[in-house]
Design a protein around this nucleic acid. Structure first.
Length: 420
DNA sequence: TCTGGGGTCCTAGGACCC
DNA sequence: TCTGGGGTCCTAGGACCC
């Protein structure tokens, strides 16, 4: 059996842990730049605030329903996630951390020794008691079915106490008939359109389609999903592996028109990618730089370009990656446009310790110890204390974050105080 | 005025080889 | 009119996830 454990309204719940006065109150969390709604408490969902809602369009509604608005505080969410996952890891030797707020546990053979219902209730109790984060648990013979069981646990949480187990054929069929096809894990917008045209409206209908049709229209991924939903385990836990690409991309708080401005941003993004690369002990062999105008402004001329650069050698030096990235930017930059978004993505990794030498150019080995020193200083004395000169030295981070909560758990200066 | 960010996997088709 | 057959590798783009 697989368990899928999911934190309820995770970002909103994290904010609430340190603001118990907000229990029962509507909360939303906004994306970077305070752009869109990316998390909502149940109360916020109930007053009709949709996922992804642009904040500026919903200001009236926020006021009207006394919604508490937070800027995204990823330092806090990341740390709370680690705490939850650490607790969950005690409950099975086989665990897959699927996202910041979800994880699969493999419970092979557990049902011979435990009541899975009691086991799940115990997990739930401990997580809420130790972290303050409410969770839901779905248990079933396959991963896709455990996702579905989790949905049921959440939907009917009052009655089910946040735990649902699909352990009989009757329950499986009933659950599949209840689930709309567009809500099946792995079926998105495009497939939904095609499936509706085939008069497929529930997960159950989907499992009745022929293998041929699914293979043809949804490829092997769709077929695996069908088997998994039929209760034949096809998807297994996935090893947590090193990342295959690393991105730093941002929308700007204003439009940029000059190469100089973009150059500074790209240098900063490239530097951030290099830091992340060093953290996972990889070097990249290629990188992509992209720049976009504002797609929402149909009245302005549009220009979207990206460029992929093959590096002459594998590197994770900030200096070298910034150089390659800014050089690439110059090749795609065009005057006369208002740029709103840009990013750097590094890819095609090789392990740090393996060096593939080339005939003509090699990485500057002095950078290895230099970067180590830079990383150490930045860890000890605060992020970005040492930067590349092409970054703006006066600028720390100009993101709009007007409703940022304290970093309660990751900064001593922000630690919670209690007045008795 | 204001509309997020970071990932994965799969496939078709082009370019190339003999 | 008719123009082989069998491969590999790479990449862009599509689809999906949270």
């Amino acid at each position: 059996m697989f368990a899928l454990i999911d934190c309820n309204n995770f970002y909103a719940s994290c904010e609430r842990v340190f603001r118990p006065d907000l229990n029962g109150q509507p909360i939303v969390v906004l994306s970077n730049n305070d752009g869109c709604v990316i998390a909502r408490s149940n109360e916020a969902k109930a007053v009709g605030i949709p996922m992804g809602a642009p904040a500026f369009e919903y200001e009236e509604q926020f006021k009207q329903h006394h919604v508490h608005v937070f800027s995204a505080n990823f330092a806090l969410y990341g740390d709370m996630s680690n705490r939850v996952m650490t607790i969950l890891a005690d409950y099975s030797p086989e665990i897959e951390i699927y996202s910041i707020d979800e994880c699969f546990l493999k419970l092979q053979g557990f049902n011979h020794y435990f009541s899975l219902q009691q086991y799940a209730e115990q997990i739930r109790h401990k997580v809420i008691k130790w972290t303050g984060i409410p969770i839901s648990i779905g248990i079933a013979p396959t991963k896709a079915l455990s996702k579905l069981a989790n949905k049921i646990a959440k939907k009917f949480s009052d009655k089910l106490k946040g735990v649902y187990i699909i352990d009989t054929e009757e329950k499986r069929i009933k659950a599949l008939k209840w689930l709309k096809v567009e809500d099946v894990w792995g079926i998105g917008k495009q497939h939904t359109k095609r499936l509706h045209a085939q008069h497929v409206f529930t997960a159950y209908d989907f499992t009745q389609l022929s293998d041929e049709w699914i293979k043809k229209n949804m490829a092997i991924v769709g077929l695996r999903l069908k088997y998994d939903l039929q209760g034949k385990p096809t998807l297994d836990l996935e090893e947590t592996q090193a990342k295959k690409s690393i991105a730093t991309t941002r929308s700007f708080e204003t439009n940029y028109t000059e190469l100089k401005q973009l150059n500074e941003r790209i240098a900063t993004f490239a530097n951030s990618c290099a830091e992340k690369l060093r953290k996972q002990k990889s070097c990249c062999n290629s990188l992509m730089v992209f720049i976009h105008t504002n797609g929402h402004r149909k009245d302005l001329p549009q220009y979207n370009r990206n460029i992929v650069v093959q590096l002459p050698f594998a590197t994770n030096s900030s200096i070298e990656i910034v150089q390659f990235a800014t050089r690439a930017l110059k090749q795609i930059f065009k005057h006369g446009y208002a740029y709103k978004k840009a990013g750097v993505i590094v890819q095609d990794f090789t392990p740090e310790e393996i060096e593939q030498t080339t005939l003509f150019e090699t990485r500057d080995k002095r950078h290895i110890s230099l970067m180590k020193a830079v990383d150490n200083i930045n860890v000890q004395f605060g992020q970005q204390k040492i930067r590349i000169a092409s970054q703006d030295l006066s600028r720390i981070w100009k993101m709009r974050q007007e409703k940022l909560s304290p970093r309660y758990t990751t900064a001593l200066s922000d630690i919670i105080t209690i007045n008795v």
